[in-house]
């Protein structure tokens, strides 16, 4: 019986190594989304910026748009932020979903780092994010003119992602009738 206790560390360790081996094989950017080709779930979020209207799912249609899920506590979002600002400067419409975050913290974050968003909604309870199948922040959904999700980017958008994946897709979506 006593020997079994001494076996415990190595058994636990083996389990951890097995998880790492599986984890190494995955590519975080290739995760499938259950949302692809489905309409956005319905949400109506309060504003982040003072005197703003917030974000409704019904707002996100009419033209291909990016829906960027972010949070002021998220480190990778800060890495992604300059890319979003550059996209905004090029006229790409981006909406922001501030996930599991306090509105005042997010508002301060946008003031300090620049604000790339056309509309921003605060989802402090995280409900809308869960409906969207958000796994972590940042994530970006590409929504077509009819309000359907067409692509999901997991993790920060790098300039490479933009040129090789997202920009061509946006062009295609814009050409769709």
């Amino acid at each position: 019986m006593r020997r079994l206790i001494f076996l415990l560390p190595i058994v636990l360790f083996a389990a951890v190594v097995a998880a790492f081996v599986v984890g190494l094989g995955r590519d975080p950017s290739k995760l499938p989304s259950t949302m692809i080709d489905k309409p956005l779930p319905v949400f109506d979020l309060p504003p982040v910026r003072a005197g703003d209207t917030g974000l409704k799912s019904a707002d996100i249609q009419g033209e291909p748009r990016l829906l960027n899920v972010f949070a002021s506590w998220c480190v990778s979002c800060r890495v992604e932020h300059p890319v979003l600002l550059a996209l905004k400067a090029r006229g790409v419409p981006i909406d922001g979903l501030d996930w599991m975050d306090r509105a005042d913290a997010a508002s301060a974050y946008l003031v300090a780092n620049g604000d790339p968003y056309a509309r921003v909604g605060n989802d402090q309870p995280g409900r809308a994010g869960i409906d969207l199948g958000v796994a972590g922040v940042p994530e970006t959904f590409i929504v077509d003119r009819r309000g359907r999700v067409r692509y999901k980017q997991i993790g920060p958008i790098s300039p490479d992602d933009w040129t090789h994946v997202i920009a061509p897709l946006m062009d295609r979506l814009r050409a769709e009738s």
Binding site: V16, W73, G136, V137
Partner: peptide, 20 residues
């Protein structure tokens, strides 16, 4: 730290864990 790895291995989807 490794929750994202473990959860993904067990359930097939990924999540992140923040300061909360």
């Amino acid at each position: 730290t490794f929750y994202p790895v473990f959860v993904e291995v067990l359930r097939g989807d990924a999540i992140t864990v923040g300061p909360p």
